[in-house]
Simulated assay, not measured.
Amino acid sequence: MTPESAGPPLYAEAHDGTLIAYRVSAASAPDDARPVLLVHGFASDAETTWIRTGWVRALNAAGRPVITVDLRGHGASDAPITADAYAPAVLGADLLAVLDSAGADTVDVVAYSLGNRVVSALAELAPERIASVVIGGAGPRELFAAWDLDEARAYIIEDRKPGNPLIAQVLGPALEAGADPSVLLAVIAGMSGSELAVPGGIRTLFVVGENDPVPAGAQDLAHEWGAGFVTVPGRDHISTLTSRHFKDAVLGFLDGGGADTA
């Protein structure tokens, strides 16, 4: 167990009673430093995405307190099994409950993959709570919108090979890791077609792996928004997370620098 993950999580209670697990790490951070909220993607958790990859350590070393959260249905959070429990607005409200519980008035946000859709919902709900956003591994196309839910269900429940190979590529590792099939299906149905949108007054940076097909169209979207854009050389959707290039780009952005590196 790494030092950042030691100890039990804290819990924020969502409006429907769901308990959302989070941790606060403030090692060496000044009392007035703005926290960084880290939001993971589908079929992952804060430990896997942000702690084991060194993100919490790097941000703390830069003097920033960090709030990590396990989205509902993931990690140590409660896991409802109905699709409406995973509507974007519901997950966005979960993040707001975490910020309130942690006493964080405003945060910078770094999100990855599907987590960006959740942050978009938070930004719609409470834009005044967000100072800046880093959109990692995401673009205008929402992955689940192109999936046939019946195909996904047949693969998860019956191990039937899907016509869309991406379904098996994404869900296979999650199932092997012991994810609950009912929760996976609920998240897919609830989040399918969710928007990627950040209000224009919020500083935004896109970061994508050079070999990652998931954020297709992200560079054009960044240009349209007037946002920064960084490509991480030689990395795919998973390996981008461990890149020092990614961390350095984010740290520079959080310090107020711009970024526009193709």
Score class of each variant (00 low, 15 high):
178 G>I: 07
192 S>A: 15
132 S>H: 00
120 S>P: 11
190 G>P: 06
236 D>K: 00
146 A>H: 10
160 R>S: 09
121 A>C: 06
218 A>L: 02
88 P>D: 09
148 D>R: 14
82 T>K: 08
250 V>E: 06
67 I>V: 13
97 A>E: 05
154 A>K: 07
102 A>H: 06
63 G>M: 07
130 I>N: 03
65 P>Y: 05
178 G>A: 10
25 S>E: 06
141 R>I: 14
104 A>N: 08
17 G>Q: 08
44 S>K: 05
27 A>F: 11
183 V>E: 08
170 V>N: 10
89 A>T: 15
119 V>S: 04
75 G>A: 08
129 R>K: 13
78 D>W: 02
14 A>W: 04
166 L>C: 00
29 A>C: 15
170 V>D: 01
12 A>F: 08
201 G>V: 04
86 Y>S: 10
228 G>V: 07
5 S>A: 12
172 G>Y: 11
74 H>G: 04
220 D>L: 13
147 W>Y: 13
94 D>A: 11
228 G>A: 13
73 G>F: 05
117 R>K: 10
18 T>R: 12
91 L>T: 09
3 P>G: 08
139 G>H: 01
186 A>H: 07
253 F>Q: 10
133 V>M: 14
180 D>M: 06
16 D>T: 13
254 L>M: 12
3 P>M: 03
151 E>W: 05
180 D>K: 09
140 P>R: 01
211 N>R: 06
129 R>C: 10
68 T>E: 03
139 G>W: 04
23 R>F: 06
101 S>V: 00
142 E>Y: 03
99 L>A: 03
71 L>D: 03
92 G>D: 04
19 L>V: 03
201 G>S: 14
35 P>S: 09
236 D>V: 00
